[in-house]
Amino acid sequence: MSAFPTTRWSLIRASQQPPRDAAAAWSALVRDYRPAIVAYFRRGVLARDAEDLAQEFLLHSMQAGWWSRADADAGSFRRFLLALLKRFRLNRENTAQQRREVLVATNDSDGAHTAASAEDSPEAQFDLQFALCLTRNALAALRERYARDGRDALFAQLEPWLADAPAHGELATLAAQLEIPANTLAVQLRRMRQRLQESIRAALAELCLERVQVDADLAALRDALARGA
């Protein structure tokens, strides 16, 4: 039994899913993560065509139903997407080489990618953008949640401090404006940040089949964020 029995990713992969539903779900998913796909192609030998390649990739993936190729190994959307991208890139590079559109041989280009610094590799750039997409989606979901509870004003006031701790005295000033104790406001901010963290993890869990895969993906994304510092 999977730790996440019905995630967005497991639904796409479910064989009993009507093909049209799976296609729609896949399409929404890859469009959400398009920036990561473009970032991946930007680091290849065909970088100047990155946007076109991304578009071509998305189209092909939808027309050919690539999600149905996910085997038992594809425990996470991120990992599966990376494998598809790699195959697609090598394919395109081979074709381009045959047409003499690129000067370097494919084997050499592979070597060049490996020799490139780790943070500049297509995979690292993909992960970095993937982490940003995930954060963006989680932030939007959190904003919506606060709005639903009628606390959108509080969200707007605390949002700037999600990334950067308030400067000395700022928290106390805002607390005085809102006429609540500073401790209470600090707790509100802490909760908001924790909810964002939980929301990111939940968003990632939606793209995985197993908890251990969520941990592995999260570790990879953290690596990419740390390397890109």
């Binding site: 600090a186 940040r193 740390a226």
Partner: peptide
Amino acid sequence: LLRLARTVLLSGSDDGVSALDALDLDDASQ
């Protein structure tokens, strides 16, 4: 977004408590 992602994801699971760091212990009321 990058700054936010780093703050939230790189500081580990206890990050949620970091807002308590914002308490100014020089301030008697806090």
